[in-house]
Amino acid sequence: MNISGNDLILACSAIGAGLAVIAGIGPGIGQGIAAGYAASAVGRNPGAKSDITSTMLLGQAVAETTGLYGLLVAILLLFVKPLTW
């Protein structure tokens, strides 16, 4: 079997893309913690539900950014293929 350098880089890019989306673990945990605290806050003060929800969504969306950077790296490796020639 004959594997050219380009093929090797393509395969390694796919592995790298898989590794890059492991970055999704962090935001997952963070968003879960935020949602848990928001749920307990609603339990304590049901009147402020809409405020709590919007604050939670804002915080979660900001926390999501790091995971999205990982996703972006994966997308670049898979579809733009910057390392191949």
Partner: peptide, 16 residues
């Protein structure tokens, strides 16, 4: 950069 990347990556991931 982070503002635009956040919006871009979210919508792009949905599209993909």
């Amino acid at each position: 950069v982070s503002l635009s990347l956040r919006l871009f990556a979210n919508i792009l991931s949905g599209t993909i």
